[in-house]
Design a protein around this nucleic acid. Structure first.
Lengths: 157, 157
DNA sequence: ACATTAGATGAGATTGATTATCAATACAAA
DNA sequence: TTTGTATTGATAATCAATCTCATCTAATGT
């Protein structure tokens, strides 16, 4: 449950100053930069990788801010999060709000969004049949994409 | 690479002694204890929880050993591993070597093993259709089991 | 443009899970 | 038993992710 921060609680004489927007929506140079990196990538990337990319590009930004931006974007449903084999969080800008899953290249992170009604209903049914409620699921498919498979077979430096 | 501190740098006619079995298979009090805890549980448990259980039961065992045991068991395919929402590893003794997935109670960890050929083939097909090779997948279903749902509705603590 | 204020930032400290170190120990074979 | 090495364990180290808090700044009102 999020706290309310609008003045419609009409605090006595606190009405003096501003009516700031909700938390996590203020437009800042740093958040814009994080979004730009995400929009420029087609695969999942770690927070640390995104931070490194920004610093290398000359953007002055703290690691904590990268994490904060990614988390609020994630809360807002604007980015998808998954964990790699080591348990590290990976982030990616994903389309729309529609529920989907990912086919991710282990080597380069390139990602294809995939959907399947049958899998969705399978997960829901499995939960229901065993008396579970509030059923969710996590499905990720990993593999080696064509390009990476080729470059392993014939590394041309 | 591990440093050696024993004097076997003196391997003169090293054929002398034993022919020890493969690494990770030696029968020790600690490994037996970890397996016992796993066999006594029906849900996924964290390494730290397993360690705590053992210590409370009076078993003298180090946390590092619990992790090592769980990891070698996992490598051997004797236990399944998944990560909870926080990214923490959870372990569970699972049946046979047959590929399956889990329906896990968020509250108590109780787990049901589930199988589905259609889901397996769906994952494989999705990868193939996009030119991915060495396709793997992770599928976990989370929910609240009947018992936990009841105890939330009417806590009789 | 200026003042105001609460959200946002960042360098560094902190947490927390997991792994590495390495001397001491225990298992298994002879 | 003896021997050789895998295993153990207390603790340090690692690493991702979060928290602290003084400072900054975007957003709004005047």
């Amino acid at each position: 449950m999020k706290a309310q921060w609008h003045s419609w609680a009409v605090t006595p004489d606190a009405t003096s100053a501003a009516a700031p927007g909700p938390v996590g929506t203020r437009d800042t140079r740093q958040r814009r930069a994080v979004l730009e990196v995400l929009d420029g990538e087609d695969g999942f990337r770690s927070a640390q990788a995104i931070h490194a990319t920004l610093r290398e590009a000359g953007v002055k930004i703290g690691l904590a801010t990268v994490y904060r931006s990614l988390n609020s974007l994630s809360d807002a449903g604007s980015v998808d999060v998954l964990r790699d084999g080591a348990g590290e969080q990976l982030f990616r800008r994903c389309g729309g709000g529609s529920h989907h899953h990912h086919l991710v290249c282990r080597a380069c992170g390139t990602t294809v969004e995939v959907e399947s009604d049958s899998v969705e209903s399978w997960a829901a049914r499995v939960g229901r049949e065993h008396g579970f409620s509030e059923v969710q699921h996590t499905i990720e498919v990993f593999g080696t994409c064509e390009a990476c498979a080729r470059s392993v077979a014939s590394p041309d430096g």
